[in-house]
Amino acid sequence: MEKPFFFHPNSAAYRMKRLLKGDMDPLIGVSELKEGDSFLDCTLGLASDSIIASFTVGEKGRILGLEGDKDVAFIVEKGLKAFPTSLEEMQHAMQRIEVKQIDAISFLEYEQDCSWDIVYIDPMFSAPIDESSNFTPLRQVGLLGQLSEKWIEEAYRVCKRRVIIKDHFNSLVFEQFKFRQIVRPNTKFHFGYLSKE
């Protein structure tokens, strides 16, 4: 039986609490994201990573999440504005995220060179991670877009500093597109990056 799809920030709450204590988040570490930066999330999904990015860039930064599936985009956009949380920093971070319903390549093609500090891509893992049960409903309704040379080329053109990708630790994507893979022991997903610096 299919599970209903609804918005929930998933891991963002405990990740933000760790940031507030002074710990480093893996996404923030690999992207070297800082206050005032712009962050383009090409695969918004449930927006967990965008929430963490939004908290990091603050009010002077900009976060835009692209979502190809119109139903997911609608639900997540409404959820970001209305999800109840007692953590004020989280509420502000969620409300600052802009959502645009469009597929990533179509959006990237019309963006100017070096127009976003960080371009982020988190495709649906080709091998589902069993522990990530919160994403089961998203896999049912979301778009399973495969990475392509075109997508990576456009992302690299549009980024000012780095293109970041997240994928299953044994994915061939890192090697295929020449991303520097950041190995994280005892985790099922890794980040990788292409840098202009």
Rank of each mutant, 00 (worst) to 15 (best):
S31K: 09
Q176L: 07
L20K: 11
C42Y: 02
W151D: 05
I52T: 07
L87N: 13
E131P: 13
A73M: 06
H8E: 14
V72Y: 01
R180M: 11
S126T: 00
E88N: 13
C114S: 14
G61Y: 08
H168T: 09
E88P: 09
S195L: 03
E77R: 06
V99H: 03
E131W: 14
V119L: 05
A82I: 03
L147T: 11
S171F: 05
L33Q: 02
V99E: 00
S132K: 14
G61E: 06
L144E: 15
Q176C: 02
G65T: 01
E197G: 11
E175N: 10
A53V: 03
I121H: 00
L147K: 09
V183Q: 08
D37L: 03
Q140P: 00
G58L: 07
K78L: 01
F189S: 15
G58K: 12
N170L: 09
H8C: 08
F5H: 04
V72T: 01
A13M: 13
R18D: 11
T187L: 10
C42A: 13
R162V: 09
I129T: 13
H190F: 15
R184D: 04
K178I: 00
K100F: 08
F189I: 12
I152S: 07
I105L: 15
S50H: 02
F179R: 12
E175Q: 14
L64Q: 05
S148R: 05
L44H: 04
K3S: 14
S132R: 14
L46V: 02
W116L: 10
I52Q: 12
A53L: 04
H168G: 06
A127E: 14
R18C: 05
L66D: 00
R161K: 15
M94V: 00
E149Y: 10
A13N: 14
V119A: 05
Y110N: 15
E131Y: 14
I118N: 09
G45N: 12
M16A: 01
D71G: 00
N170P: 00
V57C: 10
K34L: 03
P123S: 02
L172D: 15
L27I: 11
K196H: 15
V119Y: 02
R62I: 01
I118C: 10
G36D: 07
T187V: 06
M24S: 09
E89P: 09
I102W: 02
K196N: 15
D103I: 05
F169I: 10
V30M: 06
F177H: 12
G142T: 00
E111Q: 15
T187M: 11
K3P: 07
S195E: 14
P123T: 01
E89S: 13
I165E: 05
I121Q: 01
W116V: 04
E109I: 06
I75Q: 11
T136D: 14
N134T: 02
K21I: 03
D122R: 12
R162N: 10
F39V: 01
V30K: 04
Y110C: 13
S132P: 02
E2M: 14
F7G: 04
Q176D: 06
E154I: 01
L194A: 11
V99F: 02
E98K: 06
S115R: 02
T187H: 12
I75S: 10
K3E: 13
V183N: 05
S11G: 07
M16Y: 02
G36H: 09
W151A: 08
D117V: 01
S31L: 03
Q91T: 02
K188H: 12
A73G: 08
